[in-house]
Design a protein around this nucleic acid. Structure first.
Length: 349
DNA sequence: TAGGCCATCTGGTCCT
DNA sequence: AGGACCAGATGGCCTA
């Protein structure tokens, strides 16, 4: 263990609180005792253990001399321990110890950077899967699961060329997700989990049918659905012809933007399913209803992610069509929306 | 307080 | 030798 290497406190990095140090600090005494009694024994193969043992006696030794520990030679006769194989261990001089420490420090820094890059990529992924929230991020594993499900669901849409059954769609999205994330996604889709696990019940008395939302709510909700995947300008594209390439495309300048392939993607957040419930606001450009840049993206927020029983009522009764205005009521707030040719446009009250 | 999630360190392995 | 990648270990933070 490297911690043994740094048995000299002056050599300790400032990270000794990490990784095994506490454990080893307790074991320091045993290490010393072990070394005392094993002075004539073989090295146990640990480069670092050998360091602590030979550090003082080899202090000042020429660092460039690639000696091997003499104790390693010959048959290992200590107890039943098998002879150590592999490369001979070099004696650790102070200079070598210092080099090792520097190398380790640099490796730690690289590893930190690598993990930061990985996290950054995960953040970008969070932005392009449904239900993005700046205030409550999906965990890494949930982000990956949702992304996998999302890709699968979109692939199915493309493959079939038909509007998906919404319940099946939600179920696909939520497959393998934790209950909180399932609730979040269901909430994003304006479904409470009970409904989406059984059937869509329109709160105003009507019934959506077996898993299909009413046309009104369906259009509302799906106006943004999957749009980022619509090829720019391809009006005949299945996603577009089935209503998935409206608001998002126009608002964000068309799908298939190279931005989405860029590792440094810092483009618009794209939770295409987030049009309900509890919102965090992502506003782009002016607020002109039919202005492409004026579209507002609404996303669920963590504080109020519980299924909103009031939501579907609004959805069911929302008069849709360009220019129509309606109100979304959620536990958090009331949002006034106008349905435009680009889909629903909502402003925060 | 237990459990989940995360950042970080660390040593091993593979590759250049 | 050194970098990239990986998995295990550890401790901190947060929440139910």
């Amino acid at each position: 263990m490297l911690t043994r290497l740094f048995s000299d406190p002056s050599l300790l990095p400032d990270v000794q609180k990490y990784s095994g140090w506490a454990e080893d600090s307790e074991g320091d005494d045993s290490i010393i005792k072990e070394e005392d009694q094993d002075t004539q024994d073989d090295m146990d193969g640990s480069d670092l253990r050998g360091d602590s043992r030979t550090q003082s006696e080899h202090a000042g030794e020429d660092d460039e001399v690639d000696e091997v520990d003499e104790e390693d030679d010959g048959e290992d006769t200590e107890g039943d321990r098998p002879k150590k194989r592999g490369p001979k261990k070099r004696k650790m001089t102070p200079a070598r110890i210092e080099r090792t420490k520097v190398r380790r420090t640099k490796a730690n820094a690289r590893e930190r950077t690598r993990m930061h890059d990985l996290n950054s990529a995960l953040d970008n992924l969070r932005k392009v899967v449904p239900c993005y929230s700046k205030t409550q991020k999906l965990s890494k594993i949930e982000t990956l699961r949702l992304a996998k499900n999302y890709i699968w669901a979109l692939s199915e849409i493309l493959r079939s060329g038909k509007r998906p059954d919404l319940v099946a769609y939600v179920q696909t999205l939520c497959k393998g997700l934790s209950q909180p994330t399932t609730n979040l996604v269901a909430g994003c889709l304006q479904l409470n989990s009970r409904n989406f696990l059984t059937e869509q019940q329109c709160p105003d008395g009507g019934r959506y049918g077996s898993g299909s939302l009413s046309m009104h709510s369906y259009q509302y909700q799906c106006a943004r659905l999957s749009s980022p995947h619509c090829p720019p300008g391809s009006n005949s594209h299945p996603l577009r012809t089935h209503g998935y390439c409206s608001a998002y495309d126009s608002a964000y300048g068309g799908g298939g933007s190279p931005e989405y392939n860029s590792p440094d993607y810092e483009g618009p957040l794209s939770p295409p399913l987030c049009v309900n419930g509890n919102f965090s606001l992502k506003h782009q450009g002016s607020a002109s209803p039919d202005n492409e840049k004026g579209t507002t993206t609404l996303c669920i927020t963590p504080a109020c992610r519980a299924p909103d029983p009031a939501g579907p009522t609004t959805w069911c009764s929302a008069p849709l069509g360009p220019g129509a205005a309606f109100t979304l009521k959620t536990p958090c707030l009331t949002t006034t929306c106008t349905y435009t040719t680009n889909g629903p446009l909502c402003t925060m009250n």
